[in-house]
Simulated scan of single mutants.
Amino acid sequence: MVSNDGRVNPVDATTPRIGLLVGDGIGHEIVPAAQRTVDAAMSAVGAPEVQWVELPVGYDAIAEHGDPLPASTLDALDGLDAWVLGPHDSAGYPAQFRGRLTPGGTIRKRFDLFANIRPAKAFAGVYATAPEMDLVIVRENTEGFYADRNMFTGSGEFMPTPDVAMAVGVVTRRACERIAHTAFRLAQGRRRRVTVVHKANVLSLTTGLFRDVCVEVGAQYPDVEIRTEHVDAMAAHLVRRGADFDVVVTENMFGDILSDLSGELAGSLGLAASLNSSETRAMAQAAHGAAPDIAGRNRANPTALMLSAAMLLDWMSERRTDAVLGLAADRIRLGVTGTLAAGVATADLGGLASTAEFTETVGARILRR
């Protein structure tokens, strides 16, 4: 738990501690759903109960602390190595907060969460344009053309005159090397194929450096096949033959776009899990947004955040050398896939289940296996 001064109270070293940041919109429904799913999975495999550290963020934090991401929340995260972040509706925040980094962006930058891992996998029971798809987008999360990530201070976008807008893109060898190692290590546990996506025929220096460094790193993994693709061709390939790809590594903006495309081809962004990580910290965060239009109506699909939480448990299992956390992650995936295969789904997938009903069904499947 968190003390009055914002510090995380010490607990037994074997107790998993996970931060819980509900966020905005449907976060108030899907974050508790993911929490209950994790608790069920931990119970099912005989793991210690998770110590959930609830921290304010978003509209709730503005109401209580006058800021969507209070210093007390960031200070508490300093004492944790894993947390679950719900979606935020930063576009709807009061005007004084709209020109700054989003809560998620601030957290990613503060903790250097350089790897954004986004699986796209079709599920039985869910209609998919690419029903055989099972790939992972490995997205470099700190550089590129994203104005909130490519400058030490200030924005990477600027206007020298009212009629001219410019953007700075940043690619460094260090960032390319570490995301490439992440991708190739991941591929070694999958089908041993990595596709490096770039646009070096136009952005020859920036994405050319990304491509070349990834290929150099790939030479250290002789058991993994390497391919390179231009991003425009890759978008077409995903639509036509998405099942042919295993691990796709690319820069920030390309990864953002291709992962959304892959998620929809695999069934829905409502299924699209996501993990942001460094070598020492990780944050589960669904790829979709806060969906304020359906917030509070018990209609939100919690699948993406449930699967993101499973990825977080996998990451913790590897880092802590604790196999039981990996078993709990497997239980979550089995619970979700079994529920969808049985035809239980929320409205966005054409089903009739409410958020609560879907969560209860997943939890029951987890506990009975």
Rank of each mutant, 00 (worst) to 15 (best):
M1C: 05
G6M: 10
R7D: 09
P10Y: 06
V11K: 10
P16V: 08
R17P: 01
G19R: 03
G25L: 08
H28G: 15
E29P: 11
A40G: 08
E54P: 10
A63C: 07
E64M: 14
E64L: 09
H65Q: 05
A71P: 11
S72D: 14
A82G: 09
H88F: 13
A95C: 03
F97T: 04
F97I: 04
T106K: 07
R110Q: 12
R110C: 12
F111Q: 12
L113A: 06
F114G: 08
K121R: 13
F123V: 11
F123C: 11
A124W: 01
V126N: 02
V126A: 05
E132K: 03
M133H: 00
V138D: 00
M151F: 11
M151Q: 15
G154A: 10
S155M: 10
S155D: 11
G156K: 01
A167S: 14
G169Y: 03
G169K: 15
E177V: 13
I179D: 08
R185T: 15
L186P: 05
R191V: 01
T195V: 14
V202L: 06
V202C: 03
V202A: 08
T207I: 09
D212R: 11
D212A: 12
G218P: 08
T228N: 12
V239S: 03
A243C: 10
D256A: 02
I257R: 00
D260T: 02
L261S: 00
L265S: 01
G270I: 00
N276E: 10
E279Y: 05
A287P: 10
A290M: 00
A290N: 00
M316V: 04
D322P: 08
A323C: 05
V336C: 00
G338W: 09
L340I: 09
G350Q: 07
T359R: 00
A364S: 14
I366D: 12
L367N: 06
R369V: 07
